[in-house]
Amino acid sequence: MSQVHKVRRAGDRMPLIAAATGEQPSRRPVWFMRQAGRSLPEYREIRVDRGMLESCFDPELVCEITMQPVRRHDTDGAILFSDIVVPLRAAGVDLDIVAGTGPVIAEPVRTAADVAALPRLERDEVGAVTSAISMILGELPDSVALIGFAGAPFTLASYLIEGGPSRTYERTKTMMRADPELWNQLMGKLTDITITSLQAQLDAGVDAVQLFDSWAGALSVADYQAYVAPHSSRVMAEIADYGVPRIHFGVGTGELLTAMTQVGADVIGVDWRVPLDVAAHRVGYGVAVQGNLDPTVLMAGDAVMERELRRVLGEGERAVAAGALGHIVNLGHGVLPNTDAEAVTRAVELIHTL
């Protein structure tokens, strides 16, 4: 464990880390996925004429964008500004993040030769990310947790195989079932990339990590357990000794919550489709829950926002009463680009005072 971890985790615990580990937080912790992004005018200004991937490899810019929502909103967590495909790009995969579309792969991975040619990620290839973490830790208040993250192997595989975002994941599921040996070779390589990325972030000093299996909700429980869980379990096992909370999240994964927790999650992220107290019963005792306000609520006015926040906070309290270690308030997915930044600030204030 790095010296940074020892220093930042000494003394009073951060509210987010306290909630994740079963301690009593000094206040109700909150952070939002995509809190650093287009909802912030300062973000839009600093990103003018700068591509997403270019920005992700500029340590000073990563630091500034990561800090922006902490300064504006007073969140209890700072999520490292990056993207789940950054480790792939760092390793040498030819891809781009296209505005309005998402990651686009120049040469999709669909054959044994494609899988064999997939490069490994070396630690020094994410040096820009680790440099940014050092800068962020120099500015971040001691009470605010820095959250690193990576894409889970299945979600990375879906981008590589489909060539970009997909509604059906037909090529991905076809490889998975028709050629499980090739599938496991690909997933093994992606698992290695994910582990290297997370270990680099942890050695640089992040206080928690979130593994995004964003598109796992496209799978049945049986397919998840057979084709995905062994690889995600290896990711979680390889970072367990760092002793920081491991958060796991996917969209539309209500039926997978138990299986996704069993791969080694300390905190399970829940989208807005499943109440937090119901989720807590599904995953069992000894795990914290994170979520799960619908992002559109932030666009519906103060009265609706307070009503919905009270409901979510009540469900979170019932989850804790049912055996969850704690509740970290978040959205059920990311802040939408058209959200008024002032509404996000008001939501954080309400969460800290309700």
Rank of each mutant, 00 (worst) to 15 (best):
K173F: 13
T174K: 15
M175K: 08
D179H: 03
E181F: 05
L182D: 05
L182P: 09
N184G: 14
K189G: 13
D192W: 01
I193C: 06
I193E: 04
I195G: 14
T196Q: 02
Q201P: 10
D203I: 12
G205K: 15
D207K: 01
A208R: 06
Q210V: 03
L211R: 04
A216M: 09
G217N: 11
V221Q: 14
V221A: 15
Y224P: 13
V228R: 10
A229D: 06
P230A: 08
H231R: 07
S232D: 13
S233D: 11
V235C: 07
E238I: 00
E238F: 00
I239W: 05
A240E: 14
D241V: 04
G243L: 10
G243A: 09
V244T: 12
V244N: 08
P245G: 11
I247D: 01
V251N: 13
V251Q: 06
G252Y: 01
E255H: 14
L256H: 03
Q262T: 13
G264I: 12
G269L: 07
V270F: 04
V270D: 04
W272C: 06
V274C: 08
L276D: 05
V278T: 13
A279Y: 02
A279E: 02
A279H: 03
A280E: 02
H281M: 11
G284T: 09
V287G: 12
V287C: 13
